[in-house]
Design a binder for these strands. Structure first.
Length: 374
DNA sequence: AACAGGGGCAACCGCTTGCCG
DNA sequence: TCGGCAAGCGGTTGCCCCTGT
């Protein structure tokens, strides 16, 4: 089936000739592309507008960087993919001069295989079952570069799994990580000043009676820990324990008191999707929201030891309500049981709400600030 | 030298999203 | 509010080239 935009006309398909390229470049350079469907006609091309657009974006654009991906670019792709999943366009935004198509192709042809060779699932960045059992069996596997660290993270030749966000440039917002080993958890919670840091958890956490952090026997979850130097050392952990039988939104917000931990002047809203209600603690100005989407009916999987934070891009913007009225950006964070669910982050939202970037202040691009802990 | 197989990449397809009347 | 249209986006396809036999 052809494009509806070109169904009425005879259009050429397949590879572009140098002459066609020249025509398109000439036209776009001179006139721009206010309407792609009109471009081929005006440029004298037997192509559909969509094809012209693709050719321009993926190949002819003057700001494109051609050639092989650098090691840094490769690491950036892996790290951002860990957060966003297959959102190639979003990933490409972190790589100046690269297109989504290029990133996607590079991922499929190269990175994917590397990850598999390292025993990692390229979709989830989790250990593949075979590697997981090896690690569980007796710790390290000499043939597998993935290794546990004492802090619960797994590294594989530079990349850290589960996902860890750190910002060495600012020494802030230091960790977003999967649950730490049990012996570490209380210390992390203890580190949270009652008046400032906030433990945000679902009722599983409450039932467990923090600091009795229920990891790992409850099937996992995601612990997010932010340290915001801009807020005088404010350290916040967010713990999204998934799969609990639903509780009210008020339960979710119960531990929040007055602090939210993101940064000064920011508000927080929780949305319990299953309950269809939400509570806001919106202050003024820029607000960051967390939508905790519980996968209510999802059965708990048997404990599998370390359960990693898993991320699949699925940005959610919740319209309506106080948060929306105040221009709140919503970030959907749903945690996961060992690959059964999804946690969604949107780096753009993080950037825009200053969650990880400290609200700007002359900082560089997102990746400069999101120096992942590799 | 010829052929087969695999990898990489450009382009296409079709669905989603956003805008506008 | 709805429908049409254009653009955006991710998945898939198919061609070309390289390498091994």
């Amino acid at each position: 089936m052809g494009h509806h935009c070109c169904s009425k006309q005879k259009v050429k398909r397949g590879l572009w000739s140098p002459e066609e390229d020249e025509k398109l470049v000439k036209y776009i350079t001179a006139h721009g592309h206010s309407c792609w469907s009109a471009v081929p006609k005006h440029a004298g091309l037997q192509r559909c507008g969509k094809s012209c657009r693709l050719r321009w974006i993926n190949y002819l654009r003057p700001d494109l960087k051609r050639g092989t991906f650098s090691e840094q670019e490769e690491r950036t792709i892996i790290d951002v993919h860990r957060i966003l999943g297959n959102r190639w366009a979003q990933i490409a935004k972190h790589l100046p001069g690269r297109t989504d198509n290029e990133v996607k192709n590079f991922w499929n042809s190269c990175i994917k295989k590397k990850l598999i060779a390292q025993g990692l699932d390229p979709k989830t960045h989790n250990l593949l079952p075979a590697s997981r059992s090896l690690l569980h069996g007796n710790g390290a596997n000499p043939s597998n570069p993935a290794q546990f660290h004492s802090n619960g993270a797994i590294t594989n030749g530079g990349a850290t799994t589960p996902f860890t966000i750190s910002s060495p440039t600012k020494a802030a917002y230091d960790t977003v990580t999967a649950p730490p080993p049990p012996e570490m958890a209380p210390a992390m919670y203890d580190d949270v000043p009652n008046s400032a840091g906030v433990l945000m958890g679902l009722d599983q956490v409450a039932a467990a009676g923090i600091p009795g952090y229920p990891y790992p026997d409850n099937g996992g979850g995601v612990l997010m820990s932010f340290r915001d130097q801009n807020a005088a050392g404010l350290h916040t952990s967010m713990d999204f324990m998934n799969g609990s039988s639903s509780s009210s939104s008020m339960d979710h917000a119960a531990g929040m008191t007055n602090g939210n931990g993101f940064s000064q002047g920011m508000g927080v809203a929780f949305v319990d999707v299953t309950a269809g209600m939400w509570t806001t603690a919106v202050e003024s100005g820029m607000c960051a929201g967390i939508e905790v989407g519980q996968q209510q009916q999802q059965p708990l999987l048997p404990p599998q030891g370390l359960v990693q934070g898993e991320v699949v891009g699925r940005p959610t913007v919740v319209n309506g309500g106080a948060a929306h009225d105040k221009g709140m950006d919503m970030m959907d964070v749903s945690s996961v049981y060992g690959g059964a669910g999804a946690t969604a982050f949107d780096l753009e939202l993080m950037e825009s709400c200053g969650l990880f970037c400290g609200g700007g202040g002359g900082a560089g691009n997102a990746m400069e600030q999101l120096q992942w802990d590799c």
